[in-house]
Amino acid sequence: MAGQKPIMDWQKRRGETIAVGEIRVTPESRALTVRWPQGGLVWNQPAAIWVQRDGEQKRVPIINITRAIVWSLYAGVALVGIACMLRALQKR
């Protein structure tokens, strides 16, 4: 099985560094790769940027605001659902 790629892989990778003046920025992405003998799936998203300035390196995360809002809404619905169920059980 030597050389065979893993079925599922969750990796962080850094891209090429971009320099503007004294600032150097390196983008970082995280990718989920699922592979099976007759197909595959890749989900790749930006994770952060590494900013290097005056000899210091700082990680600035890239937040997917849309996803955060959407999942918060779904979590809210789930909480309301649980509350409704508990209230119905209490009244019975």
Binding site: I18, V20, I23, V25, P27, P46, I49, V51, V60, I62
Partner: peptide, 18 residues
């Protein structure tokens, strides 16, 4: 997801809202 703006003085990450 976002737009990254790099100037000689600053780096800004501007999120894109769908």
């Amino acid at each position: 997801v976002a737009v990254i703006s790099i100037t000689p003085n600053d780096v800004r990450v501007v999120p894109v809202v769908d």
